[in-house]
Design a protein around this nucleic acid. Structure first.
Lengths: 226, 226
DNA sequence: CCATAAATGAACCGTTTAGTTCATTTATGG
DNA sequence: CCATAAATGAACTAAACGGTTCATTTATGG
């Protein structure tokens, strides 16, 4: 029953990560301003680098107001991460058409994965979450589960059907999924991670994805009998 | 003239990254103690998380002594990164025997790459440097150049010879090298980055590397005429 | 128009931090 | 053994930080 699989590199729409951070968070008139400012400053400066005064200034809000909404800096940080994940998920959500060829489907999935890695939020999130993962283990875990981990699971599920239908020949589905994801990041990965100024334009991304699909098919594709 | 190529994931032996950070750094009796303590605390807590008092205590040295050696915290941090890169390079250095089969050579290279990613220093360095890259752009650049970038270059060089000798068929050497590096990190990458407690044992690594070699050969290998 | 809630900003507290100073102690090398 | 350099530790400064308080102002909704 592959009636079209959800493939996203963000957070699933149904998953309400907010629940985690909703304890002690009150609403009010300038709630969104606070979130916007916090997002800007956190993603730019990291958790330690961002001072609450900076955030309040960026948000155009007094510090007292900020603390009227959020009990402390950590809760604000968690709320930002949750919100960003949800936003990203709503944005990149896509349905895979089961009538597509394997190559077309992989290309579509790959472009979404690479696109997320290239996005401003994608870069910052990876740096930020991985860097702050020691202080907020549960946050890093949630981010992985609802982001990269989710993609992995859905990809495995999808590949499983393609194997059963005879389109692919794969023995280790977990490994294959992870290989494809990694391949999509070729020629993007460290350049992004270390902020190299290599132009990370569309062409570079497409080249990376096409290379990933070619390689994946060379390894796992079933030769056409014709 | 492929008389055996150096392949390392750290810093080349000849590269003296120290020169960068040697300005204003004085030697003395307890110099190494300071470096050891700083390395421990920096890699554990990051730049902001590490306080100079902590470092001095860990090093078993007075803060005055520390500041007698290094003019400020940043220079100490840079010195640590440079020293660690050099140390890593000396440690993992290896010569590739040109009489090896392509598979054996790739396996050896892959195990070094994956091994570095799995190592305590490798994990911390990636997290730390990528996280602190915004504050120290030149440091992130140097680390990339003398670490991952170096591996990339050497791998390209090596693949070039294998193409010329007819063992491989590759049109885009840069892409192929990056693909191989990424493949070696499959089933290790995000788990490490986000501190998931998946056991990252030797078996898992070897499975990853074997998968990388298989995939690489499936895509770029020249079918044997027999 | 007015009562109520929300927002303000500036002052303030306690803590932590990087970095300095200096009189005293310890070790080294000739 | 002694002169010189190195190391000490404890006290200190100045700044930044997270978080609180509160009297005053602003906006909202009935």
């Amino acid at each position: 029953m592959p009636t079209g699989l959800l493939l996203t590199y963000g957070l699933a729409k149904g998953v309400t990560m907010t629940e985690v951070a909703e304890q002690g968070v009150r609403r009010g008139r300038k709630f969104d301003q606070v979130l916007d400012g916090a997002r800007t400053v956190f993603l730019r400066d990291g958790f330690d680098g961002a001072s609450v005064d900076d955030i309040a200034r960026e948000a155009g809000v007094s510090k007292a107001t900020l603390y009227a909404y959020f009990p402390d800096k950590q809760m604000l940080f968690k709320e930002i991460c949750a919100q960003e994940c949800r936003l990203q998920a709503d944005d990149v959500e896509a349905r895979i058409d089961p009538s597509m060829t394997v190559e077309a489907m992989l290309t579509l999935a790959g472009e979404r994965i690479a696109g997320f890695m290239m996005s401003e939020f994608g870069q910052n999130a990876f740096r930020l979450i991985s860097g702050e993962g020691a202080r907020f283990p549960e946050l890093a875990r949630d981010f992985y589960r609802n982001g990269p981990g989710l993609v992995h699971d859905r990809l495995v599920h999808h590949l499983h059907h393609l194997v059963q239908s005879g389109a692919l020949r794969i023995d280790d589905l977990d490994l294959a999924a992870e290989q494809f994801i990694q391949l999509c990041k070729a020629s993007l990965a460290e350049n992004l991670l270390f902020r190299m100024d290599h132009q990370v334009n569309e062409d570079r991304m497409r080249r990376s994805v096409r290379g990933a699909v070619d390689m994946f098919m060379a390894r796992y594709g079933v030769p056409t009998k014709a």
